[in-house]
Amino acid sequence: MSPPATPVPGLGKDLVGLEPLSAAQIELILDTAEPFKEVSERPIKKVPALRGKTIVNLFFEASTRTRISFEFAEKRLSADTVNVAAAGSSVSKGETLVDTARNLEAMRIDMVVIRHGSSGAAQFLGQRIRSNVINAGDGKHEHPTQGLLDLLTLRDYFKTIRGLKVAICGDILHSRVARSNIWGLTRLGAEVGVCGPATLLPRNVRELGVTILPRIEDAIQWADALNILRLQLERMQAGFLPSLREYNRVFGVTSERLAKAPKDLLILHPGPMNRGVEIDSDVADGPYSVILPQVTNGVAVRMAVLYLLAGGSPDWARQAGGGE
């Protein structure tokens, strides 16, 4: 039986969220992502760092872009990857999350990347299997690699996060991307603002250390960068909003609104975009949009996370007797 994955000093066995990480740990991941950016620029986009490791992408929620990004990260590190599209929740589909996890462990998986519809699912899994667990999005709780790639992108352009003013715009209430960003940004000393209709802001969001920006115009005046969240159709159907059209007219990031910004605002979006709802096409494709660099950074950040968590056992190191 393989020994349990050794906790890397500082990062632990799993990456469940950004909330438990210190600034130093977050910076370690971002710094580690730098050399991995370079790997993706090479003609042969592969390094043998995770050769022989087996990684399962366990996605209970459909997601093309996150899964592909993780898959590239894994393959560029020479790991063996398996994609499992599992169905629904424990209750609806029979096999519980615990059983799924144990079955994977019985196949000697080294790492699991999990996306699940229930908040806490990644932590739940991490507590029950010895493999490393990486949270690719659990319910409304956190999406740590998205938060990290957003931080890396901001750092690329602003050189430092400390003192930066970042406004997160949209459905904060239901957004794991928002939560991860709030934790990561505040941990690194940024000022965070949230902007959205009151129905989509948690009542006690101020207690997270953020400023409430009532209207998108306020956000544009205040911020150095906007992180625009995708608005989901279900919110309208559940009565949080009257219509997507109204959302665009009141909260949409349009070039007319951006023209009034006192400085050049960096535009981020986790994707996929609802063009014409939360963000207009000319903004998404405009000169201040870093949406595509975010995607590039996503692979690098995920490689960094996988690399850092995949540390081997000290016992093995002693046996192998490594040399120079």
Binding site: S89, G120, F124
Partner: peptide, 10 residues
């Protein structure tokens, strides 16, 4: 035990 040994939502 099994019923409580699952995701919080469920």
């Amino acid at each position: 035990y099994d019923a409580k040994e699952r995701e919080f939502d469920d």
